[in-house]
Computed example of a mutant assay.
Amino acid sequence: MAKLLVRGVDARVAQALKERAARNRCSVEAEHRAILEQALCQTPRRSLAEVLAEMPDVGRDADFARVDDNEAPGIFDGH
């Protein structure tokens, strides 16, 4: 396992790391490892625009047209 040494860390950042580790009931080193793993190794989340762009082009525009409730077939009234 590799060892990392981070120099020149602002005192605010070091204190925030200590506080976060305490909240998560782990050592500063364990919290540091968790933060690095989360930031560097997890699959990044895709934006809504990316998800929509990947949707297949199916159906016709008319299939998705908005229908006025007065014109819609009666789904719940037995028609």
Rank of each mutant, 00 (worst) to 15 (best):
A2W: 00
A2L: 10
A2P: 06
K3D: 13
L4M: 09
L5A: 11
L5M: 11
V6T: 02
V6S: 07
V6M: 08
G8P: 01
G8W: 04
V9Q: 02
V9K: 00
D10G: 07
D10Q: 11
D10K: 07
D10I: 01
D10P: 04
A11V: 14
R12Q: 13
A14L: 12
A14P: 00
Q15H: 15
Q15I: 06
Q15K: 14
A16Q: 13
A16N: 14
A16M: 12
L17G: 05
E19A: 12
E19F: 01
A21R: 02
R23V: 07
N24S: 06
N24Q: 10
C26T: 07
E29C: 05
A30Q: 14
A30W: 00
A30N: 05
E31I: 03
E31R: 10
E31H: 06
E31N: 03
H32G: 13
R33E: 10
R33K: 09
R33M: 03
A34V: 01
A34Q: 06
A34Y: 01
L36I: 15
L36V: 15
E37H: 04
Q38T: 12
A39I: 01
A39S: 02
A39E: 02
A39H: 04
C41H: 10
Q42G: 06
Q42E: 14
Q42N: 13
T43M: 12
P44C: 03
P44W: 03
R45Q: 15
R45Y: 08
R46T: 14
R46I: 05
R46W: 07
R46G: 03
R46M: 07
S47D: 12
S47Y: 08
L48W: 11
L48N: 06
L48V: 14
L48M: 13
E50F: 07
E50M: 11
E50L: 08
E50G: 00
V51E: 04
V51C: 07
V51Y: 09
A53L: 07
A53D: 14
A53Y: 03
M55F: 08
M55L: 15
P56Y: 02
D57F: 07
V58C: 05
V58N: 01
G59F: 03
G59V: 01
R60A: 08
R60W: 02
D61C: 02
D63Q: 03
D63V: 00
F64W: 11
F64Y: 15
F64P: 00
A65M: 09
A65G: 02
V67A: 03
V67C: 05
D69S: 06
D69R: 09
E71Q: 15
E71C: 03
E71K: 04
A72L: 15
P73A: 06
P73D: 07
G74A: 11
G74F: 05
I75H: 06
I75M: 05
I75R: 11
F76T: 12
F76V: 11
D77N: 05
D77R: 06
D77C: 01
G78P: 01
G78E: 06
G78M: 00
G78N: 06
G78L: 05
G78V: 01
H79R: 15
